[in-house]
Structures are given as structure tokens and as C-alpha cells.
Design a protein around this nucleic acid. Structure first.
Lengths: 336, 336
DNA sequence: TTGTAGGCGTTATCAG
DNA sequence: CTGATAACGCCTACAA
């Protein structure tokens, strides 16, 4: 007999069920995992025993044996913004239905800690990995490759994804907004950008496309990430003295845009007449506030869902596309 | 030799490190888990070998052996609202620093599925469990007790927590708001409540306290949960015809309140003169919109953090309080 | 401070 | 369709 552990949990294990049902443990395992390969009568008897004993399978043990943890690790900067909570929600829901659980890690935008965070997750032997962003150090790329599990990157685009990617090019977004403004006859531009890689990429795309239209962009100090309504209000106050007679402002999110709209109204700056404002993200607040805010819509939930589906496909032996660009579109509303 | 599995991963395991470093596997394990119990020279040599081989420990195996998964399961209705994303964020951050990972499950407010969801989580043998709400069927209570792991319930209060609780009484919140309105001389009341158990509890507390003040409450149809800005707008439109000359409205969240404020403004209903509005949750939007919205503040992040700390304390053998009531307070702003 | 022995609870594999 | 056997990779317990 064992000389260790108290076994105090008194937890029912597969051998208990097997003994009680008069079958081998392997048969109980089959009832649980491949019921169609067990005769109806055996299956029912075992199932009844499982219910009667209140047996809760141990997937830690099962995972060790089968080398499949049925867990997926997800790393996002934060879930305090719809930008990431929407994808995570959809990702989790989709995997849930397939029997996979999500281990969630929040990077708090600390890209320097990415390697350690990923390493910590790999320790759990997830069957797949979701990453936010597509910029990784060579060390991280090697780490990911050595893990031999499917990896999806979301919310960004790169020519060479580590494995699979579901995202879009943020510089293109900025450029598209610049074109949109230019088409409306704007010649003065401003930007309120968050300091995260993707916010900066949108800004960069905006700035260089504005330059192509012969304009320049005035800016406030970079906002913290995630940026909120207050950042939009402060940012606009900072920008106000430099505003021309008619300026077009790109904000790093609808929250920031809402703050800018609110502050502009307070300061007596007419929107959109004197200040045209475009947000990003198509959040609830921009859709339902007054005035409704022009924005760039990206379907975050779809990204999360597709990321999950691709991961599932790969784990099922399929070969989903390695690079999916999701569409974005400008939704003109009352602030432009 | 083994007759199974390809071992294709080629993953470095603890025995590989041990062999390469010229020590027993157990010594490698100690370097990883209790480095202070290994001599400096041995430790450094082993650590160097670990780095050189790129060894990533397998906590699935370690967990099976030690009977500690170092994972905590968290079940919340959704992370699409700050109501729950704040606690989850703080919970995850706190546990993270202690080496625990969070497995996240979203119930989507489906209380009927709670048992199945918990059972699915227990399958992973978490070392602890976070639950949202404190109403559970007897079957669920038994399941939780049989699991023999610490459990924290948050966002609600009950006399008899399953194990530990960090929350507050929602009926008290409703009653406090009723008192607040009554003290301002209000005699006509309205409510826009979400259909989840806690939203309904706040409404019930509001209604009965209003009755105590001799008033009655007019209501729209229950809002879906989670409710958003649009629900507030629609709700107010529904309520408008029944509004008295001066009505005090309690909304189930600041999002709903913001929607009500926005719609009232559109309809030419003066806030707070003709319609006083109080939200719930002290969200960013209520603080930073114009007018700022009166609300009930509850520190969701603190709940998440305390929940994590209590779990950690219990896992460390301590006996944290089994019932912590966190304070809530009404923050009067411009809508009342 | 380090090592040895054995098992944690399940499943892949092969045999019947 | 069902069962026997041997891992999965690590850590507890004990010994030296």
C-alpha cells in the first residue's frame, strides 16, 4: 500500500467507479471520452455508477497521460476595455463549447515581460495559445516554435506571423481616416494617440497619409494605455490652444473620442463644425451617446471567435489560413 | 522501452536536465521549487543547465504528483462590463504574482447551468474557486463542499456563504438610494432594473424602502443583463409618459443611467430638475460624462483583490474571514 | 544537502 | 466491445 499522502480528499477516482460498476478503468474512460465505442448496456451501467458516486474526472491526470490539456492560454493587455474584452469573451465562449478552457493572463501592456509570461503559460502545457499583437522578440518566436502548439496572434497584422494571425493593419486604419478627413475637405489635423504599439501604428499611418495630402498633425502627449474618457478630455484641453479654425481629430479609441467630444462641448468648440472627431473601436458609448461618434469599426468578437475556430481546426488536424485580415470600416456619424 | 507515443515533442524533461547537470531529478525539482534548500554551487550549475536546454517544467505532471494545480477557476457572468471585468482583472493580477493562473469561465448569466459549469471546472482540479453571486442550489453547495477547496463568492451577500464571501447586500443599496432620494424631498420614483439576481435585489430594496417612505415606483420592462446604454435610452422612452412632474430614477448601472440621461436630454426632460437619476457602479462614463452622474460606488477591483488574497491565505493554511462586507456609498453628482 | 523509490489518476496500445 | 499493462513527468516521503 502507499506510504504517502493522506488521500484525505476521499475523492472518487476512476478505479472506484470501475470497481463499483464491475468493469475495467479503461471502460470507464471510454464511457467518458468515446461513449460510442462502448455497448449501450455497459455504458448505462457505468454512467449510473458515475452519477451515483459523484465521480468528477481528473483532467490533470488525463492530460498528463494523453498529452492534451484541453486548455488554451490567452494573453491580452487588459480586459478593462471592449477592445480586448470582446475578443476574449468570444474566444472563451467558442472554446467552451468545444470542451476547452481558457487560462487568462493579462500583460498590462508590459511587452518586456512577454517572454516570462509566455513561459509561465507554457508550463501549463496548453494545447494552444492566443497572443495579442504580432511583434515578438526572436527569443519569444523561438520559444513559441519550440512549444509545438498552434498559436494565434490577434489585433495586429504582420507579413510573417509566428503561426496563425487574425488581425488587421493599424497603419492602414490611420491612413484610411486621413483619407476620409481629406475627402471632407479638411486641411488641419490632430491626433490623440495611446502609447501602445497599435495605437502608435494608427497614429503613424494617419500622420504619413496626412503628409501625403500636404498637411501636418498637431498632437498632445501620448496617452497611457488603455486610455479612457478622462484622457480624451485632458488631451483636448491640451490641444485646444493649437486648434485651427477647422480641425480633424483622430482619437485612439471611442472612449477618448467621447472625452474629446464632451470637453469640446464644455469649451464651446462646435463639433463637427470647428472640430471633427473620429474614434476607434465602435464601442457602445460612441453608438449611443449624443452626438453619435464617427468611428472605425472592427469586429473584435469576430476576431476572438475566428481565432478560437482556427485553433480548434488546427488541433483537429486541419490547416486553417495562416493569415486572416479582418475588415475595418469607417462609420460616419454626427461628429464629422 | 516504451511501446507507445511518439514522444515527438522532443520536449526537455526534468530527467534530461538532471542527467546533463549530473544530479538527481529531485535536485532539479528543488532548484525550481525550493532553491534555498540547494547549495549555491549546485543551484547555479543546474540553473545554467535549465537555461541552456530551454527546459520548461511541466506543471501538469507536477500538479498530478503534488496534488496542487496552482490554478484557480473563476466564474463570472461576463467580462463585457466593468462590473465584472474590474474584479477579474484585480483577481488575476493578484494571483499572478503568487504564481497562480486563472481559468476563466463565463456563465452569460445562465444560472441554470451553474452546476455543469462548476463541475467542468472541478475537472481541472483547481486549488480554489471564485464564484459570482451567492445563490446556489443545494446540489451545487454539496458539489462545492465535496471539492474540498477554498471557494470565494463575490458581488453578493448571504448569511451563510458556502465558504468565504466578499460582497455586499444589494437590497441595502436599493434602500439607501431610496433614502437618499427621499431626503431630497422626492415623492415620485422610478426604476430601470436589469433582470439578473443582483439587479433585481437592488430594485426590490429600492421598492420596499420607497414604500416605507409612502411612495410607489413606476417601472419599465426588466432590462436584459448585462444592460447597456441603449437599454437606458429605450427604458426612459418607455417610462416617459408615466413620469410625474418630478421623478427620481434608479438605474441598474451607470451605463443605463447614462442612456437615460442622454435620452432625457433629447426629449427635453430636465435633469435633475424634472428627472433625478442615480446609476450604479461608479463607471468611468458616469464620472467623466457631462453632466457627471450620481451613482453608487462599489470597489469591484478591491473585491477581486480581497477574494484572491483570501484564497491565497487559505491555501497557505490561514483562516481569513468567511464573510467580508465591502462598503458602498452614494456619490452625489450633477444628476440629482 | 542530495539521492532513491514509488506512486499521483488517467489513457495509449495491444491483445483477446 | 472489453481488458491488462505500461507509461505520462513530476514530487512526497524517506534514507543517507
Amino acid at each position: 500500500m502507499s506510504t504517502r499522502r493522506t488521500g484525505s480528499t476521499g475523492a472518487v477516482k476512476i478505479t472506484d467507479v470501475a470497481a463499483a460498476a464491475g468493469v475495467a478503468p479503461m471502460t470507464v474512460s471510454r464511457v467518458l471520452n468515446t461513449p460510442e465505442r462502448v455497448s449501450v448496456e455497459t455504458r448505462e451501467r457505468v454512467q449510473a455508477t458515475i452519477d451515483r458516486l459523484g465521480y468528477v474526472p481528473n483532467l490533470i491526470a488525463g492530460g498528463l497521460s494523453s498529452r492534451r490539456s484541453r486548455m488554451i492560454a490567452a494573453i491580452v493587455p487588459t480586459i478593462a476595455s471592449p477592445m480586448f474584452s470582446d475578443p476574449v469573451q468570444a474566444f472563451t465562449d467558442t472554446l467552451d463549447h468545444a470542451g476547452y478552457r481558457v487560462i487568462l493572463a493579462l500583460s498590462n501592456y508590459n511587452d518586456a515581460g512577454e517572454e516570462a509570461l509566455i513561459r509561465a503559460m507554457l508550463t501549463r502545457r496548453p494545447d494552444g495559445l492566443l497572443l495579442t499583437g504580432a511583434q515578438h522578440t526572436p527569443r519569444v518566436q523561438r520559444l513559441l516554435r519550440d512549444a509545438h502548439i498552434p498559436v494565434v496572434e490577434i489585433w495586429d497584422a504582420t507579413e510573417q506571423p509566428v503561426d496563425m494571425l487574425v488581425g488587421f493593419d493599424h497603419a492602414e486604419v490611420g491612413a484610411a481616416v486621413a483619407d476620409f478627413f481629406a475627402a471632407q475637405g479638411h486641411t488641419h489635423f490632430a491626433s490623440l494617440a495611446a502609447g501602445d504599439p497599435r495605437g502608435l501604428a494608427r497614429r503613424a499611418g494617419f500622420v504619413s497619409q496626412v503628409a501625403r495630402h500636404g498637411g501636418t498633425v498637431i498632437e498632445a502627449a501620448a496617452l497611457r494605455a488603455p486610455s479612457g474618457i478622462a484622457d480624451g478630455r485632458h488631451g483636448l484641453r491640451e490641444l485646444a490652444p493649437a486648434l485651427g479654425p477647422r480641425t480633424a481629430l483622430l482619437c485612439s479609441s471611442d472612449l477618448v473620442a467621447f472625452g474629446a467630444v464632451t470637453e469640446a462641448r464644455q469649451m464651446g468648440i462646435a463639433v463637427p463644425e470647428r472640430l471633427a472627431i473620429c474614434g476607434f473601436g465602435d464601442f457602445d458609448i460612441g453608438r449611443n451617446s449624443e452626438p453619435p461618434i464617427t468611428t472605425v469599426s472592427v469586429d473584435g468578437a469576430a476576431m476572438g471567435r475566428i481565432a478560437a475556430e482556427n485553433l480548434l481546426a488546427r488541433m483537429a488536424g486541419g490547416s486553417p489560413p495562416s493569415r486572416i485580415l479582418v475588415p475595418f470600416r469607417i462609420i460616419p456619424r454626427a461628429t464629422t
